[in-house]
Amino acid sequence: MLTTHYNPLEASELERLISAVQAGETEHYAAIVQAFQQPLYHYCWRMLANRQDAEDAVQDIFVKAYEAIAGYVPKVHFSAWLYRIAYHHCLNLLRRRRLQKQWLRLFRPSEMTAASAEEELDNRLYTPALAAALAALSLEERNLLVLRVFEEKSYAELGVIMGKKPDALKKRMSRIKQKIKQQLQNKGEEAWSESASIMNTTI
């Protein structure tokens, strides 16, 4: 894996805080926010490629999580439960952006020169060759790649986040890697060190 995120809260302490919030002691929610704020921000930034949008998204995600926390049960890891909210929120934002850009291109095509969120993400994180390969992926495929490689989520967690069976996601991840490798080979280019790390990540 490329990076490691450490949750500063012990599992028992996290469970205690969640139970307290569910019991109405809402002041304890701040500690939960503090524990997950940074990794959630990194995830949102990688998906949205805009710092302000990522900050706004994190706030919205924590609001949604607070509103839904009464229904949380510890059968599912809290991190996976929280990332599922973030996953759907970011997908909705990206789909809304695409729709907005389609309308803007329709009415003002000459002014639409700014890169899309996906293109901005590629330009910041990857080589041009890998960026082109990633641009061909669907939003769900790219989300899976980010969650697995950068956020280091297990397939069990990914199953909860994305609402899919872990075995199916593992097979899909293999297809994604093969798709990217094939496109890189077709361009006759080899990925640089970071790209190589991404493509060689154990899945």
Results as ranks from 00 to 15, higher is better:
K64I: 08
T202F: 07
Q52S: 13
A11V: 05
M112C: 14
A131C: 04
Q100D: 13
L169A: 10
L139A: 10
R98I: 04
A191N: 02
A168T: 13
L104V: 10
P128V: 07
L184A: 04
V160S: 11
M162Q: 10
A35S: 13
L94F: 09
A117M: 15
L48F: 07
V146M: 11
L104T: 08
K177R: 12
M199A: 00
E67S: 14
V149N: 08
D53A: 15
K153M: 14
S154D: 00
V21Y: 07
I176N: 09
N143L: 01
Y43S: 09
E120Q: 15
K75D: 12
V63E: 15
A156C: 00
M173T: 02
F62M: 12
M199G: 01
D56V: 09
L104S: 13
R16I: 01
R96V: 02
M112S: 09
L134K: 06
H5R: 10
N92F: 13
I176L: 12
E194F: 09
P109S: 14
L158I: 03
A135V: 00
A70W: 13
Y66Q: 01
Y29H: 09
E119M: 14
K164C: 14
Q185G: 00
D122P: 04
T201F: 11
R84H: 09
M47I: 09
L106I: 01
T26F: 15
E157Q: 14
E157L: 05
E194I: 01
L48G: 09
L130Y: 12
P8A: 10
E120F: 07
L121I: 10
E55R: 12
L184I: 04
M173E: 03
G159W: 03
R84P: 03
A191Q: 02
M47K: 15
A135F: 00
D167V: 06
W103T: 07
E15Y: 00
A68K: 15
P128D: 06
K164E: 14
A135M: 09
W192L: 02
W45A: 11
C90G: 07
V21T: 08
T26M: 12
M162I: 04
E15T: 09
I18Q: 09
H88F: 07
S116Y: 07
D53I: 05
E13T: 13
R96A: 15
Q34L: 14
I69V: 14
L169Y: 06
L93N: 06
L17Y: 13
A65P: 02
L130P: 09
I18N: 09
A115T: 02
R16Y: 05
T201Y: 07
L104R: 14
A86N: 06
I180P: 01
K181R: 13
S116E: 11
E55C: 05
L125S: 13
L14P: 03
R172G: 01
Q102S: 14
L40R: 08
